[in-house]
Design a protein around this nucleic acid. Structure first.
Lengths: 352, 352
DNA sequence: TGCATATATGGTAACGCTAACACATCGGCG
DNA sequence: CGCCGATGTGTTAGCGTTACCATATATGCA
């Protein structure tokens, strides 16, 4: 067992020849301490390289300065940027982050949430997809008075405040953009029809088609090969999905991909078949990852303000933690923005 | 102030009509407890949804089950994958992760390390670039008996165990691959000559050229525009660097990029100039990010086993924490692997 | 029957810190 | 001169948990 030993308040007190309480006062700059004693204590602190034990402090004060962040998977660039922006706000206000990624595992989700709870974090930011067990756990936590903010989740129960982007609208706009270019055969890549229903981006896709009198054809909805569930969709999923769509006798002329990586996979598959983008087939992505501006052709996509969402979520959480805000759940929704690049244009003539 | 209230051992003890110590025994499954009492206690625990306070436990037992992870920036896919693989091992062994990303800020690095220390983490995994202040802090921590494992860092001081990949060799192999194809004018994109010196990938690049009697020309070393330091190099850096190289009267015929994103930026810049890859100019990346197989053309690159490094680092750290291993610092180095794809081929004839 | 051992439970103190209170000493002022 | 508030320091207790010791009954065996 690697044993660590650390000096305590008492050690400092002995060296400075004062009571522990006085040392505490120096550290917290609270109460009265004479200049002379303060200096003596400071010197002892420096000498021993003393750092207060946050565990003991938290136990005594019944509050921590730690926030739990629950993310789906860290490879997803959305998660990364979110974590970074949340952390920035936390650090500025003297909080630290306890992080857990679930990687689609309910077990990991439970383990992570338990760890948060056991360590009595001051609050939690959740950015995972809803699960039954997860929602129940969160609900238990809120009953104990733990502030929670969700990011990018459906308006579920159990949650105090909610930050999200209008994915539905973003998808709607993207698909309407394709329609306005003259596309009538528009496919979706990113989740099976079964799982897609839960996704707002997919709903926006469907609603845009309906609004313009176009069909949502089942064969034009391409999920991952093994239908692995509603998790993040990858390059390989996009590639495989596009291949399936291109094998159809009645091909789509445009693709709405669930995210940029899926779009890039689709792009790659089309290119490998010798097709021209956007001449033969148009592609729209979602998320505006940095790379989307550098593909060939650059990808038309929808931007969601990820960092803003993270910052806002952190701020809202801290407001709850510090008791600046109480009462009703709050909801903040950010707009998405269509970014038209070269991967979309009017379709070539096609046989009906 | 959002106040949380949690039941304690004492609450359970009262309900189950036993002493707190007995409850503790039930929870930890230590010592003797009769079946009947155990059941009574269990029922009380379920009724109140009691969860032991990890803070109090840690304070008493003088050990935590929390590991600090210090990362450069989370957007970097290497960091993401590393964090994920470390976490997996930690969770399996009942540990949780305290995470901090430095984003090139010495101040954030210090704040993060202090937070780790104040919370008395059981150990630390560091994957940031060396800084003077950071090394000093780590050295102080080791003096206190805190186990530390570094990943991907130089063999610096202050650190117990070290996990790394042989970046030098990977770069050497990649450049030798270009040379074997007949390239003689090979450029580097990713850091200014000043900062590149510290990078093993750059050293491998230089050494390969020297070994084959080729020059390392200063004008063929392209760093980011503002020379922003040794941090991660981006798509935009690659794009801008390639533009500068293509403006030279004496152009390179091949590019060794510091990482895949830089390579993709370079690829994009070359394409925008109407150049053919690899016909006009060959490009090699580094890291084998998923996307590198899907660019056009797919990118020749060097793979480093990121997840293995993370898992190994976590294992080594846990071995130290649990006292299974003591004494001398250990070093583990993983091999990189050249992955030849379509972005490299024999150069076209060029005027000398 | 007596005594060692296994089984079962409780009491006390301590981990490191700080809120709350107690107790000084000092200057100022009616 | 006595009283008040400001200033400076110490004492006590408790946050929730568990290590350690004490106690009590049950069981086995000579």
């Amino acid at each position: 067992m690697a044993k660590q030993t650390h000096p305590t308040l008492l050690d400092i007190a002995k060296i400075a020849k004062v009571a522990p309480m006085t040392v505490s006062r120096v550290i917290n700059e609270s109460g009265y301490v004479s200049a002379e004693v303060r200096q003596r204590v400071r010197r002892a602190i420096d000498k021993l390289e003393y750092h207060p034990n946050a565990l003991a402090r938290s136990l005594k004060s019944q509050r921590t300065h730690v926030v739990g962040i629950l993310l789906p998977d860290i490879k997803n660039p959305f998660s990364g940027e979110l974590a970074g922006s949340i952390q920035q706000v936390l650090l500025e206000r003297g909080y630290s982050a306890f992080l857990c990624t679930t990687e689609q595992s309910v077990q990991r989700e439970q383990a992570g949430l338990s760890a948060f709870f056991d360590h009595r974090v001051a609050g939690i930011v959740v950015a995972t997809l809803e699960t039954k067990a997860g929602d129940e756990a969160l609900e238990r936590f809120t009953r104990r008075g733990m502030p929670i903010v969700s990011v990018g989740r459906e308006p579920g129960l159990a949650v105090v405040d909610r930050v999200t982007a209008n994915h539905w609208r973003g998808a709607f706009d993207a698909v309407e953009h394709l329609i306005s270019l003259g596309h009538k055969r528009i496919a979706y890549i990113g989740a099976s029809a079964l799982h897609a229903r839960r996704l707002r981006r997919f709903q926006g896709f469907c609603d845009a088609l309906h609004e313009h009198g176009l069909d949502v054809r089942d064969e034009w909805i391409a999920g991952p090969a093994g239908d692995s569930g509603p998790g993040y969709s990858t390059l390989a999923d996009g590639y495989a999905g596009m291949q399936r769509l291109l094998d159809l006798s009645r091909r789509p002329t445009a693709i709405f991909a669930r995210n940029d990586f899926t779009a890039m996979g689709a792009l790659s598959a089309a290119r490998d078949r010798g097709l021209d983008i956007p001449g033969d087939i148009a592609i729209v992505g979602f998320d505006n990852v940095p790379l989307s501006a550098f593909t060939s052709p650059p990808l038309t996509t929808v931007e969601q303000p990820t960092a803003e969402q993270g910052r806002r979520a952190a701020q809202m959480l801290l407001e709850r933690i510090e008791g600046e805000v109480e009462g009703e759940h709050r909801e903040v929704s950010f707009d998405c923005r269509l970014i038209v690049r070269a991967s979309t244009q009017t379709p070539a003539e096609q046989p009906e």
